[in-house]
Design a binder for these strands. Structure first.
Length: 229
DNA sequence: CCCTGATTCGC
DNA sequence: GCGAATCAGG
């Protein structure tokens, strides 16, 4: 995966908007693992994860286990490697088991529920805008690749949801982020890193029904259009 | 079962 | 650095 400044910017954008990793991955045509991995490397703020930290609050009894989370995949290998030592004889360890595409990735479920709106995290992250629900459209596009239209290509049709004006009430200090002076629609393409002093939005006049101006809409949606396979 | 994100580790 | 494999909670 080529992590260009563009893709990273989009990753950060989508990430800060609270989209799920899988969703981000879909929009970027990468796996959620890639998204999560990259997000971590970028040091993006972790979003409420389904799994709790085993010891969110310490002070419990017991204790000796500082970090027994080491099960890790290496175990399989360790067994495989060291297996010849103890258990080699009686039975084969049969290390292969989970490897088979167990859950896989829900390849292309035709009818997927729209990504539920992520709850606002209490963490110091600030959702800048509502999540863009674009998946259904994508699915639609992908679901109907079979179109006999040699001479009459159906209208290009924006593959993105209209995305109503978010109009996010500034509950926290937005000082430093230059907001559009007027209240009309403005391009909300993020410039810079959210949370840093220089961060701001494009602010140009967006395309009708789109959250971005022509320039950024091209960047934002080209991949989506391209990703349909 | 499905979803989710986190972590590890081979590449 | 990257991401698949894996783990683990809801």
């Amino acid at each position: 995966m080529e992590w260009t400044d563009e893709t990273i910017a989009r990753l950060r954008d989508l990430w800060s908007q609270g989209l799920s990793t899988a969703e981000i991955g879909r929009q970027l045509s990468i796996t959620k693992n890639a998204v999560v991995g990259k997000a971590h490397r970028l040091g993006l703020p972790p979003r409420p994860s389904p799994i709790r930290n085993r010891k969110a609050a310490d002070g419990e009894a017991g204790t000796t286990e500082a970090a027994p989370r080491r099960k890790s995949p290496s175990k399989a290998k360790a067994v495989e490697a060291a297996g010849s030592d103890l258990f080699a004889e009686g039975k084969d360890a049969a290390p292969a088991k989970a490897a088979s595409g167990v859950v896989e990735k829900t390849a292309e479920t035709p009818a997927r529920k729209a990504p539920s709106a992520p709850e606002a995290p209490k963490a110091p992250v600030q959702p800048v805008a509502a999540a863009r629900v674009v998946s259904p459209v994508q699915k639609e596009a992908a679901a109907a690749p079979h179109r006999e239209a040699p001479i009459t290509p159906p209208k290009p049709e924006p593959r993105v949801a209209p995305a109503p004006r978010p109009a996010v009430p500034p509950r926290f200090s937005t000082a430093g982020i230059d907001r559009p002076t007027r209240r009309g629609p403005s391009c909300c393409w993020p410039i810079g890193d959210p949370g840093t002093p220089g961060f701001h939005f494009c602010g140009a006049t967006p395309l009708p029904g789109k959250p971005y101006c022509a320039e950024h809409a091209a960047i934002a949606y080209v991949k989506i259009r391209d990703r349909r396979d």
